[in-house]
Amino acid sequence: MAAAAAAGAGPEMVRGQVFDVGPRYTNLSYIGEGAYGMVCSAYDNVNKVRVAIKKISPFEHQTYCQRTLREIKILLRFRHENIIGINDIIRAPTIEQMKDVYIVQDLMETDLYKLLKTQHLSNDHICYFLYQILRGLKYIHSANVLHRDLKPSNLLLNTTCDLKICDFGLARVADPDHDHTGFLTEYVATRWYRAPEIMLNSKGYTKSIDIWSVGCILAEMLSNRPIFPGKHYLDQLNHILGILGSPSQEDLNCIINLKARNYLLSLPHKNKVPWNRLFPNADSKALDLLDKMLTFNPHKRIEVEQALAHPYLEQYYDPSDEPIAEAPFKFDMELDDLPKEKLKELIFEETARFQPGYRS
């Protein structure tokens, strides 16, 4: 834990890192770190609560700039109880001085990944967590956004079992017609939660990839272990087919990539493993919904509104309290091709509203 900075004593240090967030945020305490930044909790002297502050230093890398800009653009436009918001952003007053960006968010005690390492969940908890994931996802999908990296560590939890989806750095506007060349190379989302079509096709992607990830998360809540822990690309596919069985001819016809289709045709026939054999203690309604989410063919996979209306979630289902976005989200430009200098300018502009004396 960093010592509390005395008023006016300059930035606090946390594990050798400068955290320049005073005077409003003090009493910093280390939480963890990701690929390009550290997260601390801090005391907000204005709202009198502890908050989470993520320090991001992305400006050396085009990919990190892209992810940072995506996350900020999306989260500043989203407003939903099951999606983490941005409360404040701290950065230098000029673009030349801006080396880091500090993002202030609600402090959540833990995440689903940490929880599943230590606790076996009751059916009631599984049901409530799944409902909140789908409630947040309904809003995301209504904005025409794909999260693309749903996994237990991106689901934040607090002691009252509130759940918030975080990390929109890989999110995209849904565009089933656009052929994202190089899709697989830039697709760094965790393999275990990846839909089979991501490994088999490169053309376009749809909201059904997020539903697949939610199915993987439900299976993990039922058993405290990942359902498809593939060691590499082909191993991942083999794990999936080992449980779902061989795809039907109709399902194979959806695979545009001939090499991928021929690979699947070359494999020995596998039978589907019954879900109640894998999860003998699970609620039968939970397994019915799991089956509809972990469907090989993305066109037959359940959609988020149908999933919310499934009998497993009937005690929570309330369409009048499951809000959607006001308007579909649009990125003005494809960020993939922009140089990091341009992305830095866009991050600077996007964060201006939090600067003292800002006038829109």
Rank of each mutant, 00 (worst) to 15 (best):
A4F: 00
A6H: 13
A9W: 01
G10P: 06
P11Q: 14
R15G: 12
Q17K: 13
V18D: 15
V18K: 08
F19E: 07
F19G: 04
V21F: 01
V21W: 02
G22P: 00
P23D: 06
R24P: 03
G32D: 11
A35C: 12
A35E: 04
Y36A: 15
M38V: 13
V39F: 13
S41Q: 03
A42T: 14
Y43R: 06
N47P: 13
N47G: 12
V51Y: 12
A52N: 05
I56E: 13
S57K: 13
P58V: 15
P58M: 15
T63W: 09
L69E: 03
E71S: 14
L75E: 14
H80E: 03
I84T: 00
G85E: 11
N87Q: 02
N87M: 02
D88F: 03
R91Y: 02
R91I: 11
P93R: 06
Q97K: 14
V101K: 08
V101Q: 07
Y102P: 00
I103D: 05
Q105K: 14
E109M: 06
T110F: 00
T110D: 09
D111Q: 06
D111K: 01
Y113P: 03
L115T: 05
L115V: 07
K117L: 09
H120R: 10
L121Y: 04
L121E: 09
S122E: 10
N123M: 09
D124L: 06
I126F: 14
Y128L: 06
F129M: 06
Q132W: 02
I133D: 05
I133S: 10
I133Y: 05
R135F: 04
H141Y: 08
N144A: 05
L146G: 03
R148V: 05
D149G: 01
K151I: 06
L156G: 15
L156W: 00
N158A: 08
T160I: 11
D162W: 00
D162K: 02
D162F: 05
L163T: 03
F168W: 03
G169V: 14
L170H: 05
A171C: 01
R172F: 01
D175Q: 07
G182C: 12
F183Y: 15
E186I: 02
Y187I: 02
Y187M: 01
V188M: 06
A189H: 08
T190Q: 01
R194V: 09
A195W: 05
E197N: 07
L200A: 08
S202F: 07
K203E: 07
K203M: 11
K207E: 00
K207I: 09
S208T: 14
S208A: 14
I209V: 00
I209Y: 06
I211G: 07
I211C: 10
V214N: 06
C216Q: 05
L222M: 13
R225D: 04
I227W: 06
K231H: 00
H232C: 03
L234Y: 08
D235I: 06
Q236D: 07
L237D: 00
N238E: 08
S246C: 13
P247D: 06
S248N: 07
Q249C: 04
Q249S: 03
D251Q: 05
L252D: 05
K259T: 07
K259H: 10
K259V: 05
L264G: 01
L267Q: 14
H269A: 03
K270M: 13
K272V: 08
R277C: 11
R277H: 06
F279N: 05
P280E: 11
D283W: 00
L287Q: 15
D288S: 01
L289R: 07
D291K: 07
D291Q: 12
M293S: 03
T295Q: 05
T295G: 04
F296N: 03
H299A: 04
R301A: 03
R301I: 13
I302F: 15
E303T: 08
V304H: 07
V304R: 08
E305M: 02
Q306T: 05
L313A: 01
E314H: 00
Y316N: 15
Y317N: 14
D318G: 00
D318T: 02
P319E: 10
S320Q: 04
S320N: 01
D321L: 02
P323V: 08
A327W: 03
P328T: 15
K330S: 06
K330W: 00
E334G: 01
D336K: 08
D336P: 07
D336A: 12
D337W: 10
P339C: 02
P339S: 13
E341W: 00
L343N: 10
F348K: 09
E349N: 08
E349D: 14
E350R: 01
E350D: 15
R353G: 09
F354W: 07
G357A: 13
